[in-house]
Design a protein around this nucleic acid. Sequence first.
RNA 1: GCCCGGGUGGCGGAACUGGCAGACGCGCAGGACUCAAAAUCCUGUGUCGGCAACGGCAUGCGGGUUCGAUUCCCGCCCCGGGCACCA
Length: 802
Amino acid sequence: MSHAPSYDPQDVETRWQARWVERHTNEPDLERPARAFYNLMMFPYPSAEGLHVGNMFAFTGADIYGRFQRLQGFDVFEPMGYDAFGIHSENYALSVGTHPAKLIPQNIAAFRRQLRRFGGMFDWRHELATTDPGYYKWTQWLFLQLFKAGLAYKKRAAVNWCPKDKTVLANEQVINGRCERCDTPVEQRFLDQWFFRITDYAERLLKNLDTLDWSASTIALQRNWIGKSDGAELVFRTPAQQTITVFTTRPDTVFGATYLVLAPEHPLVDALTAAEQRPAVRAYQREVQGKDVVARRVGDKTKTGLFLGSYARNPASGEAIPIWIADYVLMDYGTGAIMAVPAHDGRDFEFATQFRLPIRPVVQVEGAALPSVSEDGVLVNSDRFDGLECREGGRRIVEWLAGLGLAIAKVQYRLHDWCISRQRYWGPPIPIIYCDRCGPVAVPEQDLPVELPFIEDFRPDDSGVSPLARHKEWYNVPCPQCGEQGRRETDVSDTFLDSSWYFLRYPSTEFDDRPFDPRRTATWLPVTTYIGGNEHAVLHLLYSRFVTMVLKDQGRIAFEEPFPKLRAHGLIVKDGAKMSKSRGNVVVPDAYIQQWGADTFRMYLMFLGPFQEGGDFRDEGITGIRRFLEKVWIIAHEAVTSPDGPLPPAVLQKLHQTIQKVTGDTGSLNYNTAIAAMMEYVNALRSAHCGMRIAVEPLLVMLAPYAPHLAEELWERLGHTGRSVFDERWPTHDPQLAVAGDAEIAVQVNGKLRGRLVVPRGALQQDVVAKALAEEGVKKFVDGNTIRKVVFVPDRLVNLVV
RNA sequence: GCCCGGGUGGCGGAACUGGCAGACGCGCAGGACUCAAAAUCCUGUGUCGGCAACGGCAUGCGGGUUCGAUUCCCGCCCCGGGCACCA
């Protein structure tokens, strides 16, 4: 028995990290790859706290996948960068009183150190940071392409305003009426904002989901977010010939519409208000506006509302029905007005009950109490449409009313246009110059980037105007079109614009005269596999898809879906709760890596549970992984001196089973069970006292994605000097060798296990049954009864039914 | 309320398309080595009854389909995540 030197992870890992740099191990040929594989992971926001366990978990899982693909023979490009603009960075800078321009580079340096230390297969030649003018020049360029295509527009709109962060938030950043960052209730403000017409792409964004190989959970989130509703717009006329258009998904229930409700801020409210109701309506409108969005949206049980004192004609029944306003109707969905069908809508029912409005059922559903919302019923009280099923009735009613010019079939989306304006400092300035004569003018592309000026006092204020407005020399510029005095746009763009195209930049970072090189892009994109968390299922992923579609439509790229294959990893929690600074349960990986080494920590994180489900972080089990790697270390050193020869049959079989299992499980991201399989194999080698090279080398290759440093070290110690283990090929299994000659068969009597048999593989039913009946344990349950039925699963099971 | 997940030993978790529930690891117990401890190695470890052979019971709860159900169907309960007066 050879006495191996002891395993010192720090020593091994430092050495190999240096080697990878010297030997350019992780730098694929971007120009002429034989088989390009773009392995993308979601780049981090470089927080001051450093890389946390959640990042490590995600990156390790993605890195294992990339390394595995490389061993399959692909040229794997695995880049890394930093999503360094945005409110989170700026707020942190504010809280510690350091300028972000100083703070962020420090954070990035710390992240870079950690990312190198954990052993990712990153191609550092292509690192990027969204705060680099060489990057955001192209973010601004992207804005201009949308602007020129008419997809960016400015409008005065009710926006979500966070009074604490003093900025506008996208709908996606408002959680339960609160700011996703600081949890402050969001207020409504009216500001001029830049929007992107993502709603123009709603249908395509939705439809393409069917073509994507994505985690089902992510698809579901996006589908929900886009929120398609099929329905119709119906027109209600007043005696004065004013028209109120409503959107409904249930045109079949129009005969049951007993009143109308408009949003309090609906433009027709004034015109529809009877004189005597005017003061009350004004008061109500003011009250609603003062209400914070939480109270209005999440709304408790009691509904409020007010009769306007006027009536409209139900286009179907011809009946005059009262017009109300109520804050349960939202201006920013549909037409801002609804027909209320209290018999068949929960909210309308509640409202009608409270204000004693008539409730008229028009759909008969077997045994259902009001309000019955089911569409599985037949129409009643609906004139000549009586007796029709809901869907068919709806279609006919729309057809009929459309003929009268009172209806049109309509699809409605929950998705809103993307508000990209931020009245903050830490972001790319929106490249627009306002001119009194020419209006908003695009900054000429050759003048990009519009650099973010250094401003000592970058704090936002309540004015609703970005701090950039306080920098006069920067703010006042001539109009690029007419040369008259102009003013720069002072809003910066949303961080999600930075990240909506970063995957296009990575392969082309060295080109400063183009955002992405056409050839590089054709070679490497779309991204082969994207691995990331579902926290970005709607924001980042939807925006990236939108931007990609726009670029495709402009002929700049040849594909419209950036991420044909996406896998969502799970969440690492601590004691059942999400890790967060406020809970104080954030686990920092550095100390673990210091104590155990990156390889042990990587594998430990992957062994915690299924990668795509996440798990609870606890460090009790980490010694198990370390023991395993120690065993590998010892057995590999044995292999250096151990004489070669044919493998014992049991080991040979186990080897091929292991290759099969580890290959399948690694490819499907089931890393926990792949690791278990390798553990079993090592245990088998040890109990067979087999340390032969032909048994150990395939193990090292399979282990390499998981414990890259250790695998490199042992590979070299086995005599493979000057060549990375990652330039080897993944072992293949022989299905013949992976199965045993004998099969163990479970013997059941009436479905209960009563014994086991070892028979030659492929044994016939009659032989197995005969042998089973000879077993004492089986006999006593069968004796005295006749066998009525035999269920036989070859090589697995026999069930005797008596 | 709606849409996704999920509920299996003391713990993290395994179980292919309905076919031996509990792989692998942690922990725990006993043993070996040691003056002793750590490390390492060996053995055991779902639960109840039994000295044992063995048997009963067990995958959130209640039904069902089936020779056979952690897996499929129906009805509930609980946990995590997303959306939420979206008409």
